[in-house]
């Protein structure tokens, strides 16, 4: 019989990073609620969002950590990276400064996650093309140089938002399939550097607590 979505096979942790006001929370909201949040308050600390998706017939639960973009939270934010399977790095195509800061965000992402973490570059606010401050080509070149996947999105219209989240999941899943992401290591009992950890659908895991 059709498995309910509660029977997901994996949980993937994502983090969303980038400067203040680039639209991180709005992207999350658009992805989980399919709605645009017009007056979004500043994120303090971390906000969570979850959604269950399907990749290659497997149900995967995304646990998305939406971080504060303000510089003063930067030190706190660093503690969120650990164990992320995917990182969405966001800038605002209408504000050049948010693009210029990408290298610093990328450094954090590289240093604080494991080598297999999939980093996805998102140029948000593609609906405001008239006010564009960063060309697509320029950002695409930056992404290629650094081995990132890149898309321009709009949290307002929803354009490409779904693709960014799903494409990231596909890449992570591919890494699991070809063995480059070692799940056993995650099960070693030490705080895992790598994610995801499998949660078998059947509940056959000895560690599964059904008490």
């Amino acid at each position: 019989m059709a498995a309910g979505p509660y029977n997901y096979s994996y949980i993937f942790k994502y983090i969303i990073i980038g400067d203040m006001g680039v639209g991180k929370s709005c992207l999350l909201h658009q992805f989980t609620e399919k709605k645009f949040m017009a007056d979004c308050p500043h994120t303090i600390g971390v906000e969570f969002g979850t959604r269950i998706i399907e990749v290659s017939g497997q149900k995967i639960k995304l646990q998305i950590w939406d971080t504060a973009g303000q510089e003063r939270f930067r030190a706190v934010t660093r503690s969120y990276y650990r164990g992320a399977a995917g990182a969405l790095m966001v800038y605002d195509i209408t504000r050049r400064s948010t693009y210029n800061h990408l290298s610093s965000w990328l450094t954090d992402a590289r240093n604080l996650t494991n080598p297999n973490t999939v980093i996805f570059l998102i140029g948000n606010k593609s609906d405001l093309d008239a006010q564009r401050d960063v060309t697509y080509e320029e950002a695409k070149a930056f992404a290629d140089e650094n081995g990132l996947t890149f898309l321009e999105c709009s949290a307002k219209t929803g354009e490409n938002v779904e693709d960014a989240f799903l494409e990231t999941a596909r890449k992570i899943y591919q890494n699991i399939q070809d063995g480059s992401l070692d799940l056993n290591q995650a099960d070693s009992g030490v705080q895992p550097k790598q994610l995801p950890r499998t949660t078998p659908a059947g509940g056959g895991d000895a560690k599964q607590c059904n008490c």
């Binding site: 646990q63 009992g189 705080q191 994610l195 950890r197 949660t199 607590c209 008490c211």
Partner: peptide, 17 residues
């Protein structure tokens, strides 16, 4: 009795959520 410390962060966060 569920030996929470042995569980992974992602799973614990999931439980808390």
């Amino acid at each position: 009795e569920c030996d929470l410390p042995a569980r992974h962060e992602v799973e614990l966060v999931d439980l808390v959520l």
